[in-house]
Design a protein around this nucleic acid. Structure first.
Length: 289
DNA sequence: AAGAGGCCCTGATAGC
DNA sequence: TGCTATCAGGGCCTCT
Protein backbone atom coordinates (compact mmCIF):
# COMPACT_ATOMS: atom_id res chain seq x y z
CA UNK A 1 0.00 0.00 0.00
CA UNK A 2 1.89 2.82 1.39
CA UNK A 3 4.39 5.08 -0.24
CA UNK A 4 6.14 7.96 1.50
CA UNK A 5 3.04 10.21 1.77
CA UNK A 6 0.85 7.51 3.32
CA UNK A 7 3.57 6.55 5.78
CA UNK A 8 4.03 10.21 6.71
CA UNK A 9 0.29 10.58 7.33
CA UNK A 10 0.41 7.57 9.62
CA UNK A 11 3.50 8.94 11.36
CA UNK A 12 1.73 12.21 12.07
CA UNK A 13 -1.31 10.57 13.55
CA UNK A 14 0.77 8.08 15.52
CA UNK A 15 2.89 10.86 16.95
CA UNK A 16 -0.15 12.51 18.48
CA UNK A 17 -1.27 9.21 19.97
CA UNK A 18 1.80 7.48 21.35
CA UNK A 19 4.70 9.92 21.62
CA UNK A 20 6.12 10.07 25.17
CA UNK A 21 4.00 7.12 26.21
CA UNK A 22 5.17 3.92 27.83
CA UNK A 23 4.52 0.47 26.39
CA UNK A 24 2.51 -1.58 28.86
CA UNK A 25 2.17 -4.77 26.95
CA UNK A 26 2.74 -6.26 23.50
CA UNK A 27 0.64 -9.02 22.00
CA UNK A 28 1.76 -10.88 18.87
CA UNK A 29 -0.92 -12.93 17.20
CA UNK A 30 1.14 -13.90 14.18
CA UNK A 31 4.93 -13.69 14.06
CA UNK A 32 5.19 -14.69 10.44
CA UNK A 33 5.47 -11.36 8.75
CA UNK A 34 8.07 -10.67 6.08
CA UNK A 35 10.67 -11.34 8.74
CA UNK A 36 9.73 -13.52 11.68
CA UNK A 37 9.15 -11.47 14.82
CA UNK A 38 11.57 -12.89 17.41
CA UNK A 39 10.17 -14.35 20.63
CA UNK A 40 11.87 -11.77 22.81
CA UNK A 41 10.18 -8.88 20.96
CA UNK A 42 7.39 -8.42 23.52
CA UNK A 43 9.72 -8.42 26.52
CA UNK A 44 12.12 -6.07 24.81
CA UNK A 45 9.47 -3.41 24.17
CA UNK A 46 7.70 -3.74 27.48
CA UNK A 47 8.08 -0.71 29.78
CA UNK A 48 10.02 1.31 27.21
CA UNK A 49 8.88 4.80 26.41
CA UNK A 50 8.37 6.06 22.87
CA UNK A 51 10.60 9.12 22.66
CA UNK A 52 9.95 10.03 19.04
CA UNK A 53 7.81 8.84 16.13
CA UNK A 54 9.99 9.21 13.08
CA UNK A 55 9.94 8.20 9.43
CA UNK A 56 12.52 7.48 6.75
CA UNK A 57 11.21 6.93 3.23
CA UNK A 58 8.57 4.21 3.67
CA UNK A 59 9.75 3.14 7.12
CA UNK A 60 8.29 4.20 10.44
CA UNK A 61 10.90 4.48 13.16
CA UNK A 62 9.87 4.45 16.81
CA UNK A 63 12.65 5.89 18.98
CA UNK A 64 12.74 4.07 22.31
CA UNK A 65 13.84 5.23 25.75
CA UNK A 66 16.78 2.79 25.87
CA UNK A 67 18.26 4.39 22.73
CA UNK A 68 17.14 1.57 20.51
CA UNK A 69 14.64 1.71 17.65
CA UNK A 70 11.67 -0.22 16.41
CA UNK A 71 11.27 0.03 12.65
CA UNK A 72 7.95 -0.79 11.03
CA UNK A 73 7.40 -1.34 7.34
CA UNK A 74 3.86 -1.71 6.04
CA UNK A 75 4.68 -3.71 2.92
CA UNK A 76 1.85 -3.68 0.41
CA UNK A 77 -1.17 -4.09 2.65
CA UNK A 78 -0.18 -3.05 6.17
CA UNK A 79 -2.26 -0.58 8.17
CA UNK A 80 -2.11 0.70 11.73
CA UNK A 81 -5.23 1.46 13.73
CA UNK A 82 -5.44 2.98 17.13
CA UNK A 83 -8.19 2.47 19.64
CA UNK A 84 -8.59 4.19 22.97
CA UNK A 85 -10.18 2.57 25.99
CA UNK A 86 -13.00 5.06 25.71
CA UNK A 87 -13.66 4.18 22.07
CA UNK A 88 -13.65 0.51 22.85
CA UNK A 89 -16.35 1.01 25.48
CA UNK A 90 -18.53 2.90 23.01
CA UNK A 91 -17.94 0.38 20.26
CA UNK A 92 -18.90 -2.54 22.48
CA UNK A 93 -22.37 -1.10 22.99
CA UNK A 94 -22.82 -0.45 19.29
CA UNK A 95 -23.74 -3.02 16.64
CA UNK A 96 -21.47 -1.35 14.07
CA UNK A 97 -18.62 -2.60 16.25
CA UNK A 98 -18.77 -5.88 14.43
CA UNK A 99 -18.09 -4.20 11.12
CA UNK A 100 -15.48 -1.82 12.43
CA UNK A 101 -11.88 -2.20 11.24
CA UNK A 102 -10.98 -2.05 14.92
CA UNK A 103 -12.81 -5.31 15.51
CA UNK A 104 -10.65 -8.35 16.15
CA UNK A 105 -9.60 -9.61 12.75
CA UNK A 106 -7.56 -12.55 11.55
CA UNK A 107 -5.07 -10.13 10.00
CA UNK A 108 -4.48 -8.13 13.17
CA UNK A 109 -1.00 -9.46 13.88
CA UNK A 110 0.52 -7.10 16.44
CA UNK A 111 -0.93 -5.04 19.28
CA UNK A 112 1.10 -2.53 21.23
CA UNK A 113 -0.76 -1.51 24.35
CA UNK A 114 -0.29 1.75 26.25
CA UNK A 115 -2.02 3.04 29.38
CA UNK A 116 -4.98 4.64 27.64
CA UNK A 117 -4.95 3.16 24.14
CA UNK A 118 -3.52 0.50 21.93
CA UNK A 119 -2.31 0.38 18.35
CA UNK A 120 -3.07 -2.55 16.09
CA UNK A 121 -1.00 -3.65 13.11
CA UNK A 122 -3.13 -5.28 10.40
CA UNK A 123 -1.62 -6.79 7.25
CA UNK A 124 -3.43 -9.36 5.07
CA UNK A 125 -0.48 -10.07 2.79
CA UNK A 126 2.14 -9.99 5.54
CA UNK A 127 4.77 -8.28 3.41
CA UNK A 128 5.34 -5.79 6.20
CA UNK A 129 7.64 -6.25 9.19
CA UNK A 130 8.81 -5.10 12.61
CA UNK A 131 12.49 -4.95 13.49
CA UNK A 132 14.35 -3.91 16.62
CA UNK A 133 17.54 -2.01 15.94
CA UNK A 134 19.75 -1.80 19.00
CA UNK A 135 21.53 1.49 18.46
CA UNK A 136 22.12 4.49 16.25
CA UNK A 137 25.06 2.93 14.43
CA UNK A 138 23.09 -0.14 13.45
CA UNK A 139 20.20 2.06 12.36
CA UNK A 140 22.52 3.92 10.03
CA UNK A 141 23.80 0.61 8.71
CA UNK A 142 20.28 -0.71 8.17
CA UNK A 143 19.45 2.11 5.79
CA UNK A 144 22.83 2.40 4.11
CA UNK A 145 21.53 1.28 0.73
CA UNK A 146 18.68 3.79 0.66
CA UNK A 147 19.07 6.71 -1.69
CA UNK A 148 18.15 10.24 -0.53
CA UNK A 149 14.53 11.06 0.14
CA UNK A 150 12.81 13.37 -2.34
CA UNK A 151 12.81 16.14 0.28
CA UNK A 152 16.52 15.78 0.97
CA UNK A 153 18.50 18.69 -0.54
CA UNK A 154 20.83 16.01 -1.93
CA UNK A 155 18.04 15.01 -4.30
CA UNK A 156 18.75 17.80 -6.77
CA UNK A 157 19.31 18.11 -10.51
CA UNK A 158 23.01 17.37 -10.35
CA UNK A 159 22.56 14.27 -8.23
CA UNK A 160 19.85 13.02 -10.57
CA UNK A 161 21.80 13.80 -13.71
CA UNK A 162 24.99 12.16 -12.48
CA UNK A 163 23.17 9.13 -11.09
CA UNK A 164 21.25 8.56 -14.29
CA UNK A 165 23.79 9.32 -16.95
CA UNK A 166 24.91 5.70 -17.33
CA UNK A 167 21.59 4.03 -16.60
CA UNK A 168 20.04 1.81 -19.24
CA UNK A 169 16.95 1.22 -17.08
CA UNK A 170 13.64 2.91 -17.82
CA UNK A 171 13.12 6.14 -15.88
CA UNK A 172 9.93 4.78 -14.28
CA UNK A 173 11.84 1.77 -12.92
CA UNK A 174 14.55 4.10 -11.63
CA UNK A 175 12.05 6.28 -9.77
CA UNK A 176 10.82 3.29 -7.78
CA UNK A 177 14.38 2.05 -7.22
CA UNK A 178 14.96 2.84 -3.54
CA UNK A 179 18.72 2.93 -4.03
CA UNK A 180 18.38 5.92 -6.32
CA UNK A 181 15.67 7.83 -4.44
CA UNK A 182 13.75 6.44 -1.49
CA UNK A 183 10.03 6.74 -0.80
CA UNK A 184 8.48 6.73 -4.27
CA UNK A 185 6.34 3.76 -5.25
CA UNK A 186 4.23 2.70 -8.19
CA UNK A 187 1.46 5.30 -7.89
CA UNK A 188 3.54 8.41 -7.44
CA UNK A 189 6.10 7.38 -10.09
CA UNK A 190 3.40 7.60 -12.77
CA UNK A 191 2.05 10.87 -11.39
CA UNK A 192 5.48 12.50 -11.23
CA UNK A 193 6.42 11.54 -14.80
CA UNK A 194 3.10 12.86 -16.08
CA UNK A 195 3.74 16.26 -14.51
CA UNK A 196 7.21 16.27 -16.10
CA UNK A 197 5.86 15.21 -19.52
CA UNK A 198 8.43 12.44 -19.53
CA UNK A 199 7.68 9.08 -21.13
CA UNK A 200 8.12 6.40 -18.44
CA UNK A 201 9.96 4.09 -20.83
CA UNK A 202 12.84 6.35 -21.80
CA UNK A 203 16.23 5.35 -20.45
CA UNK A 204 17.59 7.12 -17.41
CA UNK A 205 20.65 8.22 -19.35
CA UNK A 206 18.58 10.13 -21.89
CA UNK A 207 17.25 12.73 -19.45
CA UNK A 208 18.58 16.23 -20.01
CA UNK A 209 19.80 18.37 -17.13
CA UNK A 210 16.66 20.49 -17.48
CA UNK A 211 14.49 17.40 -17.19
CA UNK A 212 16.44 16.33 -14.12
CA UNK A 213 15.85 19.72 -12.56
CA UNK A 214 12.13 19.52 -13.28
CA UNK A 215 11.99 15.96 -11.97
CA UNK A 216 13.44 17.08 -8.63
CA UNK A 217 10.86 19.86 -8.35
CA UNK A 218 7.82 17.88 -9.45
CA UNK A 219 8.68 14.93 -7.22
CA UNK A 220 8.64 17.17 -4.15
CA UNK A 221 5.47 18.85 -5.35
CA UNK A 222 3.49 15.64 -5.85
CA UNK A 223 4.54 14.12 -2.54
CA UNK A 224 3.94 17.32 -0.55
CA UNK A 225 0.47 17.67 -1.98
CA UNK A 226 -0.32 14.03 -1.27
CA UNK A 227 0.73 14.43 2.37
CA UNK A 228 -1.45 17.54 2.73
CA UNK A 229 -4.42 15.63 1.35
CA UNK A 230 -3.97 12.76 3.79
CA UNK A 231 -2.40 10.33 1.32
CA UNK A 232 -4.13 8.21 -1.30
CA UNK A 233 -6.90 5.80 -0.46
CA UNK A 234 -7.15 2.99 -2.97
CA UNK A 235 -8.43 -0.27 -1.67
CA UNK A 236 -8.66 0.63 2.02
CA UNK A 237 -5.79 2.78 3.20
CA UNK A 238 -6.79 4.82 6.23
CA UNK A 239 -4.85 6.76 8.80
CA UNK A 240 -4.73 5.47 12.35
CA UNK A 241 -8.09 6.93 13.30
CA UNK A 242 -9.75 5.38 10.29
CA UNK A 243 -9.91 8.45 8.05
CA UNK A 244 -9.41 7.97 4.34
CA UNK A 245 -6.96 10.07 2.32
CA UNK A 246 -8.04 12.27 -0.54
CA UNK A 247 -5.13 12.40 -2.94
CA UNK A 248 -6.60 9.68 -5.16
CA UNK A 249 -9.04 12.35 -6.35
CA UNK A 250 -6.04 14.28 -7.64
CA UNK A 251 -4.58 11.43 -9.69
CA UNK A 252 -3.82 12.66 -13.18
CA UNK A 253 -2.99 9.27 -14.70
CA UNK A 254 -2.98 6.51 -12.11
CA UNK A 255 -5.98 4.21 -12.57
CA UNK A 256 -7.35 6.47 -15.32
CA UNK A 257 -6.84 4.12 -18.28
CA UNK A 258 -8.97 5.10 -21.28
CA UNK A 259 -9.90 8.49 -19.84
CA UNK A 260 -9.05 11.85 -21.30
CA UNK A 261 -5.85 13.63 -20.27
CA UNK A 262 -6.40 16.27 -17.59
CA UNK A 263 -3.75 18.60 -18.98
CA UNK A 264 -5.21 21.82 -20.34
CA UNK A 265 -5.93 21.58 -24.07
CA UNK A 266 -4.43 18.07 -24.36
CA UNK A 267 -6.77 15.57 -25.95
CA UNK A 268 -4.62 12.57 -25.16
CA UNK A 269 -5.97 9.32 -23.76
CA UNK A 270 -4.45 7.74 -20.67
CA UNK A 271 -2.78 4.41 -21.43
CA UNK A 272 -1.91 1.59 -19.10
CA UNK A 273 1.32 -0.25 -19.81
CA UNK A 274 2.93 -3.09 -18.01
CA UNK A 275 6.66 -3.51 -17.63
CA UNK A 276 8.89 -4.86 -14.89
CA UNK A 277 5.72 -6.64 -13.77
CA UNK A 278 3.99 -3.43 -12.67
CA UNK A 279 1.44 -1.20 -14.31
CA UNK A 280 2.34 2.28 -15.43
CA UNK A 281 -0.03 5.00 -16.58
CA UNK A 282 0.76 7.76 -19.07
CA UNK A 283 -0.79 10.15 -21.56
CA UNK A 284 -0.25 9.07 -25.16
CA UNK A 285 0.20 12.67 -26.32
CA UNK A 286 1.89 14.84 -23.72
CA UNK A 287 4.23 12.03 -22.65
CA UNK A 288 5.17 10.91 -26.14
CA UNK A 289 8.69 9.45 -26.50
C1' DA B 1 27.98 -4.41 -11.54
C1' DA B 2 23.66 -3.45 -13.47
C1' DG B 3 19.51 -5.30 -14.65
C1' DA B 4 15.90 -8.85 -15.15
C1' DG B 5 12.97 -12.00 -12.91
C1' DG B 6 11.08 -14.67 -9.22
C1' DC B 7 9.23 -14.91 -4.81
C1' DC B 8 7.04 -13.92 -0.29
C1' DC B 9 1.17 -13.77 0.78
C1' DT B 10 -4.07 -12.92 0.74
C1' DG B 11 -8.15 -10.95 -1.23
C1' DA B 12 -10.91 -8.73 -4.77
C1' DT B 13 -12.57 -9.04 -9.17
C1' DA B 14 -13.26 -10.78 -13.90
C1' DG B 15 -14.30 -14.40 -17.03
C1' DC B 16 -15.86 -18.92 -18.14
C1' DT C 1 -22.38 -21.25 -7.83
C1' DG C 2 -17.77 -22.43 -8.38
C1' DC C 3 -13.58 -22.84 -10.69
C1' DT C 4 -9.31 -20.40 -12.44
C1' DA C 5 -6.59 -16.52 -13.71
C1' DT C 6 -5.06 -11.95 -12.99
C1' DC C 7 -4.00 -8.09 -10.44
C1' DA C 8 -2.65 -5.15 -6.15
C1' DG C 9 0.59 0.44 -3.18
C1' DG C 10 7.13 -3.44 -1.87
C1' DG C 11 11.50 -5.19 -1.34
C1' DC C 12 14.77 -8.85 -1.08
C1' DC C 13 17.35 -12.45 -3.24
C1' DT C 14 19.47 -14.93 -7.09
C1' DC C 15 21.09 -15.41 -11.59
C1' DT C 16 23.32 -13.75 -15.70
Amino acid sequence: MPELPEVEVIRQSLEKKINKKRVKKVIIKNRNLRFKIPHNFEDFLKNLKITKVDRLSKYLILHLSNRSYCIIHLGMSGTIHSISKKQKKTLLTNTSFYHSPLMPNKHNHVEIIFEDLKIIYNDPRRFGFFQIIKNKNLLKKRFLSLGPEPFDPKFNKNYIYISLKKKEKKIKDLLIDQNFVSGIGNIYASEILFLCKINPEIKGKSLTIQECSNLAKKTKKVLEEAILKGGSTIRDFKNTVGLKGNFQKSFKVYQREGMICKRHKCNGIIQKKKFSNRSTFLCNICQKM
